[in-house]
């Protein structure tokens, strides 16, 4: 297990400004995490409009992109996360 205070699930959501898609994506993500990963997750939202340098690191092209940093391996889910089943498959929380 990880040190105390560090969550098992580290998720990063890349957005570009406060667009409708970004807001929808964040809302969807929070809902899914609360339902399936309550207490075990941490979400970091990165706005590339403010920090364009950070896009290269995770090879971000599509907006919004959700990156599962932990547990490894890295997983990416693009889109507004409106399909819960597919998000769960993408996060390896459910078999595809």
């Amino acid at each position: 297990m990880k040190k105390t205070g560090e969550k098992t699930w580290q998720l990063r959501l890349y957005v570009a400004g406060q667009t409708a898609k970004s807001i929808t994506a964040l809302a969807n993500l929070k809902k899914i995490c609360e339902t399936h990963l309550a207490g075990q997750y941490e979400i970091e939202v990165i706005d590339l409009v403010q920090n364009p340098k950070l896009a290269a690191g995770d090879q971000i092209l599509a907006i919004p992109t959700l990156v599962r940093r932990l547990p490894s391996p890295i997983k990416k889910i693009i889109g507004d996360l409106s399909n819960e089943t597919r998000v769960l498959v993408g996060l390896d929380l459910r078999q595809g």
Partner: peptide, 21 residues
């Protein structure tokens, strides 16, 4: 780098990330 095996798609998106980069 675009790696299809790493990417799951759900819902609407655009390529704003590419533009930003």
């Amino acid at each position: 780098r675009v790696e299809r095996s790493e990417i799951e798609e759900t819902g609407e998106y655009d390529l704003e990330g590419l533009f930003i980069r």
